[in-house]
Design a protein around this nucleic acid. Structure first.
Length: 376
DNA sequence: TAGGCCATCTGGTCCT
DNA sequence: AGGACCAGATGGCCTA
């Protein structure tokens, strides 16, 4: 069930795809080609093993020459009914004839293959989960347990935002995300959010008052367009700091409401028409602190390039970019959490080329509910 | 080298 | 009988 849910991307918020993700080339069922190739290879291996008898217990390989005939009617109570020992209860064991042995081997091999596939599915689902939690890296994957913990914290944080109708400040947000995580993962998440670990580990956590804000989700103080990566030619011409919003909602929420659902939001900076899509502005929080200035690392070596808040709000882009009515809607519904002020600011650097931002999720009724909730 | 993480195999249990 | 799921065991790989 969980596996199915994780694999079913339609159940997940819309995720803009990073350039690196394109390599995954997922097939319809969410499996990558590599995984499918690997699966095929393993199945072949199993087929070969079935003939060679690899991976079987030694005792199973022992054959009783007396049982060469089909001994289905030969039953042994408890496996041993000789001597004075009382007969064991339970179903009578059948003698392992050669035929039964062979069938047993085949069953075991098939079960192994199924188990392998099941675990691959589970891992694939975990990979999908890694991509939608706030800290994603292709080069340094979160462990399974850390992924689950972070996901739980992330869900909790989002739920808290929805429940309270207030925006948390960055520090408390990161504290929430990092609750129960290991130190390395905590550092990673903090790095993703461009927050020094020390700045929040020393603070008491979970202060409800941190979810503050008189104007829910107003982003006047926190609107930063991400600086375009110097290495990204598509973004090279984007002004360094363009307010994501001049009024109203913050980036991630904009992306929930975009596509015409957000009355009053038409950022004047991006109202220009024309067929060419606007340059995307993002609020990705990147790990690459060193590349804040002009010394941005090259894409090939930029570790931080993968550490990203990939649910970047595309608030800088005008609504309805794709002409589908969905526009940029939802593509930022996620990590681009509106932070309250705690001195920490989110500086995104990654600006994704427009064509890298795939809108592969339909808007769900949930988004509509959220929309109506915040507009009532 | 110890410890963490992972993939795989395996047997048990439950369900169809 | 067979499949799904689970947990224990085991060995490999990697890193501090």
């Amino acid at each position: 069930m969980l596996t199915r849910m994780f694999n079913d991307v339609s159940l997940l918020p819309e995720v803009p795809r990073f350039p690196g993700w394109a390599e995954d080339s997922e097939s319809e069922d969410g499996k990558t080609r590599d995984e499918e190739a690997e699966r095929g290879r393993l199945e072949e291996e199993d087929a070969q093993n079935a003939h060679s008898g690899m991976g079987l217990d030694e005792e199973e390989d022992e054959e009783d020459p007396e049982d060469e005939d089909d001994g289905d009617e030969d039953l042994v109570a408890g496996g041993d009914d000789s001597g004075d020992r009382p007969r064991k209860r339970g179903p009578k064991k059948r003698k392992m004839t050669a035929a039964r042995l062979e069938r047993s081997k085949m069953r075991r091999l098939k079960a192994n293959a199924r188990e392998r596939m099941r675990m691959h599915d589970l891992n694939s689902a975990l990979d999908n989960l890694r991509k939608v939690v706030p800290c994603y890296s292709k080069t340094q994957k979160l462990s399974k347990i850390e992924t689950l913990r972070l996901a739980k914290n992330y869900i909790w944080a989002l739920s808290e935002i929805l429940r309270s109708g207030r925006r948390p400040d960055l520090v408390s947000y990161v504290q929430t995300l990092c609750k129960g995580l290991s130190q390395p993962t905590t550092n990673l998440v903090a790095g993703c959010l461009q927050l020094s670990t020390r700045s929040f580990l020393t603070e008491p956590c979970q202060d409800p008052s941190r979810y503050h804000g008189n104007e829910p989700f107003s982003m006047h103080a926190y609107s930063f367009a991400c600086r375009s990566r110097l290495s990204s030619p598509q973004c090279a011409s984007v002004p360094a700091a363009i307010p994501l919003r001049t009024h109203g909602y913050c980036a991630p929420y904009d992306s929930l409401y975009a596509g015409g659902a957000s009355p009053g939001y038409t950022s004047p900076e991006y109202e220009g028409g024309g067929a060419s899509p606007p340059l995307p502005l993002c609020v990705n929080g990147n790990y690459s602190v060193k590349s804040q200035d002009g010394g941005a690392a090259s894409p090939g070596t930029d570790r931080g390039f993968h550490y990203s808040m990939h649910y970047s709000g595309l608030a800088g882009t005008r609504a309805g970019t794709t002409g589908t009515g969905l526009g940029t809607a939802g593509s930022g519904a996620g990590h681009g959490i509106p932070y309250g002020s705690s001195g920490a600011r989110v500086h995104g650097e990654n600006t994704l080329p427009y064509h890298e931002m795939h809108l592969h999720h339909e808007r769900t009724p949930v988004y509509e509910d959220i929309n109506s909730f915040f507009h009532n």
